[in-house]
Design a protein around this nucleic acid. Structure first.
Length: 853
RNA sequence: GCGGAAGUGGUGAAAUGGCAAACACACUAGCCUUAGGAGCUAGCGCCGCAAGGCUUGCGGGUUCGAGUCCCGCCUUCCGCACCA
């Protein structure tokens, strides 16, 4: 017996050794140039925010990606597997406030720490293409893209109501407001502020973003649905209702006691509806409390002002609580009227708390007979309810109201009565358009992307405010507009850059007169909207990337990340790709062919969080069990798309398994290396056949999983089964009953199969077995179907649907011999005795089923 | 309300319509020892001494055969939501 110490699996010795060797070979994980002729495979995991520490979610994400990358390398693909840092953002400023550390220093320090963790985990990234979004070499291209969008009218500035988070002291995009609260501060209610802001015209691509989802069949249905909901297309029409003042107002006006408000005399209320076919059933018009006309009306009527303010307050509160449906529908009559352009009926105008200003036109026509909400409202205020749609089937019973089906026929609708709903919608839209009082209209919930942030740690928006020339873009040759260093960070309103005179004061590029720089910075989601293109040409200093290089690699073959980015990042980056395509920079319409969203890592049934105190540190795990065991457990404990409950005992179990593999391989590596004459032609022992069969079955299972299903948990289980079987055959291996070349094949293949999941141990054992070159480029094993085939199979026998017994037959046995075997079985004969076999169903190799009467 | 995913042992889970619970964890008993976060052997869904019976959220259906397919419910998680 050799020294036991040497037989002990010690990741703390093996892993740093290989880490150093890999670090010394910068080409190991680098992609070949396009000319290599190998098929390309662009595999990407979402880049992390450099908070300072990897968390288990990262480890899982990267363990999945790295296993796949290693497998693809072994399959002979030219793999692009890059990593970078999403390095702008508020936490750096908060840290600056707290520790008095400059954001840049804090961020770069965190990057160094996290990169060390990634290297320690043995993740195979090509660090030559690393990107860091907070460095000018990167963010200057954000500015460059911004200017291109400005030229194409895809970037613009407007005064608007914006979401303001008091804790971030900055504006948020709609996508960053969750249930009325900030995405970073779940307890902080977002306020509305009126500010001049820069916007990117995402709505210009709303329809294409929606249509593109149908073709993204490599994306999870869940993500596609979420994006469809977010884009929120609805098809309908806008119709103008003429404003008609109340009788009281007219009388007062005629008596000369009050001056008419000129602006109100010929006003028009434009409503949006998806059911223009029901317009003859409209019995009132409802305005959102924040509708501009309400403001005008209320300015002359103090009582109304108070009521309206109350409605607005209710909406805000409901929005903050996240459930708008819960608030009680109510409203305030204005006393004024709107004229239905189709029948000139006078409809009372109400202000209602359930009508939203930020959707459609902020005004609706109320058709109680055919809309749930309108019905509820009309009941409450005893407004008339007029049915104008009848079921399509003339024999159908009188429908209960509200009758919201569109499968119907118009009634009580003048000359349009008798038309089907769909026809009527078309006709009425045409009539409205030809009479210039309406048009067909498609409304989206998606809004333009507000990208201005009043913070320091972001990309400066490359614009200059000149008193003479207005808004002047920074010329391309003056990019980048560099973020100044060593500035004072405060949380008090306004951009910190506004307090840096040497940044603000600039000469106008047009007239040369003194001017002011824009002091807002860009939303950090700009950085991540195109970063993956930069990986294809990370060092380029005269363009964001070379289009030819991007075209070679794009689209991304596989993108992997958390589902929490389903809306924000994944819509913005799809938008950016379409813009770049229209700038002739790329040829692809979509950034990623396939998207995989891995499940969360949880502990004791709850998401890991500092406040719950259930955070498991990757460093701890690596220190105790090694990187291989940590990574392999992350793949073994659950299929990658499901949530994973972190149980440390499980990591210990995987670690023990790796120890068994280590002992097994090192014990027989001498035999495997012995170069004994290939003696396989002699009668193979049963054990040899069994082991080879198991081996080739395992290769087939794992290979199949890598090709799409990705159930790496069962891949690991399959390797465990193989090892269990090898261990069970220890006597035969030790006695030499299994020939040396077979031992070599068994062990070498085992190590190759292990390589994507436990790269350190695989590299160590590969070397021990005398494997040539890096195991990363060793060919992935092929399953030999002849060796994998079972000689005998067990066939379950069912009688009248019940399992009775199992019979053994030769693997290729035909239906007749299976039937014969079943019918001669003792248990079967006992049950069949005295009865007739009415029917026999045989699925060769699978099952036999008898129907007995 | 709309949409998506899921529901199987004490736990994580496995199962192209064909022997439910593979592989692990935990546990139990035993062995070994250089006493280790080690190794080995055996047991481990439920009821039962056993023979045997029962078991994949609930109720139906299709089928020779259903955890798997279909219909209807229930529960949980996620996303969207007075979207006109």
């Amino acid at each position: 017996m050799a020294d036991d110490k040497d037989q002990r699996y010690d990741p703390a010795a093996i892993e740093p050794k290989w880490q150093a060797r890999w670090a010394a070979d910068p080409h190991l994980y680098a992609a070949d140039p396009p000319a290599s002729g190998k098929p390309k495979y662009y595999l990407l995991e979402m880049l992390p925010y450099p908070s300072g520490q990897l968390h288990m979610g990262h480890v899982r994400n990267y363990a999945i990606g790295d296993a796949l990358a290693r497998h693809m390398w072994m399959r002979g693909y030219n793999v692009l597997h890059p990593m970078g840092w999403d390095a702008f953002g508020l936490p750096a400023e908060n840290a600056a406030l707290k520790n008095n550390t400059p954001p840049r220093q804090w961020t770069l320090g965190n990057i160094a720490a996290m990169k060390r963790q990634m290297l320690r985990l043995g993740l195979g990234y090509d660090w030559a293409t690393e990107i860091t979004t907070c460095l000018p070499e990167y963010y200057r291209w954000n500015q460059w893209f911004f200017l291109r969008m400005l030229e194409k009218d895809l970037a613009y500035r407007k005064q608007s109501k914006v979401n303001w988070c008091p804790d971030c002291a900055t504006v948020l995009a709609n996508e960053q407001v969750i249930d009325g609260c900030c995405w970073r501060h779940e307890e902080t209610r977002v306020e509305q502020r009126d500010l001049e802001q820069w916007f990117l015209r995402t709505t210009a691509y709303a329809q294409e973003l929606l249509d593109g989802l149908d073709k993204l069949d490599g994306w999870p249905e869940k993500v596609r649905t979420m994006q469809r909901n977010w884009i929120g297309r609805s098809q309908g029409a806008e119709v103008d209702f003429r404003f008609e003042r109340s009788m009281h107002d007219l009388l007062v006006e005629q008596s000369g006691e009050a001056k008419p408000a000129a602006s109100q005399t010929h006003q028009i209320i434009r409503v949006f509806t998806t059911r223009i076919d029901t317009i003859f059933g409209a019995t009132s018009v409802q305005l959102a409390p924040e509708h501009p006309m309400v403001g005008t009306l209320a300015s002359a009527d103090h009582g109304l002002r108070v009521q309206v303010d109350e409605l607005i307050a209710e909406q805000k509160k409901a929005r903050a609580s996240g459930d708008l449906t819960a608030i009680d529908k109510h409203g305030v009559p204005t006393g004024h009227f709107a004229v239905n352009p189709f029948n000139n009926e006078l409809l009372p105008i109400w202000i209602a708390n359930y009508v939203l200003m930020d959707y459609g036109t902020g005004a609706i026509m109320s058709v109680p007979a055919h809309d749930e909400r309108d019905f509820e409202f009309a009941k409450k205020y005893a407004l008339p309810i007029r049915r104008v749609i009848a079921p399509a089937d003339p024999n159908a019973e009188e429908p209960e109201l509200p009758f919201t089906s569109e499968d119907g026929v118009l009634v009580n609708s003048g000359e349009y009565s008798g038309l089907r709903c769909a026809e009527a919608q078309k006709r009425l839209q045409e009539v409205a358009a030809s009479g210039a009082f309406g048009e067909a209209k498609i409304t989206y919930r998606l809004k333009d992307w507000g990208v201005s942030r009043q913070r320091y740690w972001g990309t400066p928006i490359p614009m200059i405010h000149c008193d003479r020339d207005g808004l002047v873009p920074v010329p391309d040759d003056q990019l980048p507009v560099v973020l100044p260093e060593n500035i004072e960070i405060t949380q008090q309103g306004g951009s910190p850059l506004g307090r840096v005179p040497e940044f603000v004061h600039v000469k106008c590029p047009k007239c040369g007169e003194p001017a002011r720089r824009e002091t807002d910075t860009m939303d950090t989601f700009v950085d991540s909207s195109w970063y993956f293109y930069r990986y294809t040409d990370a060092q380029n200093d005269h363009a964001p990337f070379d289009s030819a290089k991007a075209q070679h690699w794009f689209p991304i073959d596989q993108y992997i990340g958390g589902v929490e980015h389903a809306i924000l990042h994944l819509i913005y980056s799809r938008f950016w790709t379409k813009v770049m395509r229209d700038l002739d920079l790329v040829a692809n319409d979509e950034p990623a062919r396939r998207l995989f969203t891995q499940g969360m890592v949880i502990k004791d049934g709850a998401k890991m969080s500092k406040s719950k105190g259930n955070v498991v540190s990757p460093d701890d795990m690596v220190a105790r069990y090694g990187a291989d065991a940590t990574r392999m457990y992350a793949l073994f404990a659950a299929p990658p798309d499901r949530d994973l409950d972190w149980q440390e005992d499980g990591v210990a179990g995987v670690s023990r398994f790796l120890g068994r593999v280590y002992r097994l391989v090192t014990k027989y590596s001498c035999v495997a290396k012995s170069n004994a004459p290939a003696a396989r032609e002699t009668q193979a022992s049963p054990t040899t056949a069994t082991l080879l069969r198991k081996l080739h079955q395992t290769i087939a299972r794992i290979t199949l999983d890598f090709e799409g299903r990705w159930h790496f948990n069962t891949c690991v289980a399959a390797i465990m089964e193989l090892v269990n079987e090898l261990q069970a055959a220890d006597a035969e291996l030790a006695s030499g009953e299994v020939p040396a070349p077979v031992v070599a094949e068994l062990l070498r293949t085992l190590v190759l199969l292990l390589a994507p999941f436990a790269p350190y141990l695989a590299a160590e054992l590969w070397e021990d077995l005398g494997g040539e070159g890096a195991i990363l480029r060793a060919p992935w094993p092929k399953s030999d179907p002849g060796l994998a085939k079972e000689e005998e199979v067990e066939i379950p026998v069912q009688i009248n649907g019940k399992l009775v017994t199992v019979v053994r037959v030769a693997a290729g046995a035909d239906s007749k011999s299976i039937e014969a075997a079943a019918l001669t079985d003792r248990k079967v004969q006992l049950r069949v005795a005295g009865k007739t076999v009415a029917k026999v169903i045989v699925v060769p190799g699978r099952a036999i089923s008898l129907v007995v009467k």
